[in-house]
Design a protein around this nucleic acid. Structure first.
Lengths: 167, 167
DNA sequence: ATCATTGCAAAAGATTTGCAAGGTC
DNA sequence: GACCTTGCAAATCTTTTGCAATGAT
């Protein structure tokens, strides 16, 4: 894990919207209603989501506030490039989570409930740094998902559709 | 990481073929030429592969030893269920690696060369166990990929096509 | 006015499925 | 012979792209 990743992401001086404005400015891109709408929606609550979930929560075609699927994909991609969101994969689809202004963390993935549960552990971060150093590997980031069953999951929950398990 | 995962996977008494036979037997499934062929091919060398790479290495249609794409997918899935292979995701596609008879490990992913590099670290395994215990989480496995640039990668390599980076 | 952005339709990439023909026990 | 498997074609799912119309600066 790099310095960039472990530090300087929590104490930010600007909002996601402000940071995205700068990002657009710098690249000669424009602030549009769709980008504003997605920005608002995505940073309204702190939770993981995939594109399907996001689209389900947004207005349908021909409704005010509608954003097309391609634009959602394009905009999420921009948010990732702008450092606002992180993207990773779970069960064959992309999952997004807040990055900007949010502390680095890892996840448990409950195979019963299908939920992602965050945790932070400094020892882990340090150990990963050490292991990489031992192997002369320059780290830009890492992704750890611990699979299993959460306490909550032990109380039986259905889980969302998925392809074959990957661990 | 469970006991099952960290122990008892290395010192095995039977070959992948034997284990797969048992698996088939138990489920009333049959040993076919295609399954035998894939078994041989996949366990011939220890390396990571995706379906495309595997298909590239196998005989083409109308050649002896040809296995169709659907059968390759179906059979790899069986190998995973039989505990012979592990499956995970990288850049939007499934990657397979040996599981049966092979020690648990984690990976560096070099973003320059596109290569997966294995490493083993007992401290890491133990720490993950501890963290899970602290959170009352029953672990069945984990997946850690450390992204960055390997020493080798620093000497400039092209890398395979991919979707947007996920870390 | 210029040039970025959007939505639509279609394409692309990965994986899965229905089904008739063929193979295994 | 019973029924599991295969290959083909087609479907599915997720994501991306070409392009004409629209919108932002």
């Amino acid at each position: 894990m790099s310095q960039e990743e472990s530090l300087g992401k929590v104490d930010v001086s600007s909002t996601p919207a402000q940071r995205f404005e700068e990002f657009l400015q710098l690249r000669g891109m424009r602030m549009t209603e769709q980008r504003r709408l997605l920005l608002d929606h995505v940073f309204r609550r702190h939770e993981h989501f995939d594109v399907e979930e996001l689209l389900d929560q947004l207005p349908r075609r021909n409704q005010p506030g509608y954003v097309s699927r391609p634009t959602v994909y394009r905009t999420l991609s921009e948010f990732v490039d702008a450092g606002l969101l992180r993207k990773f994969e779970l069960d064959g689809r992309a999952v997004y989570e807040h990055d900007y202004g949010y502390p680095a963390h890892d996840h448990f993935y409950c195979e019963k409930s299908g939920k992602l549960i965050e945790f932070q552990n400094d020892e882990l971060v340090e150990l990963i740094r050490q292991i990489a150093a031992q192997h002369d590997f320059q780290v830009t980031g890492h992704r750890l998902i611990i699979h299993g069953i959460s306490r909550e999951g032990r109380e039986q929950h259905p889980r969302r559709k998925r392809r074959q398990d990957m661990v």
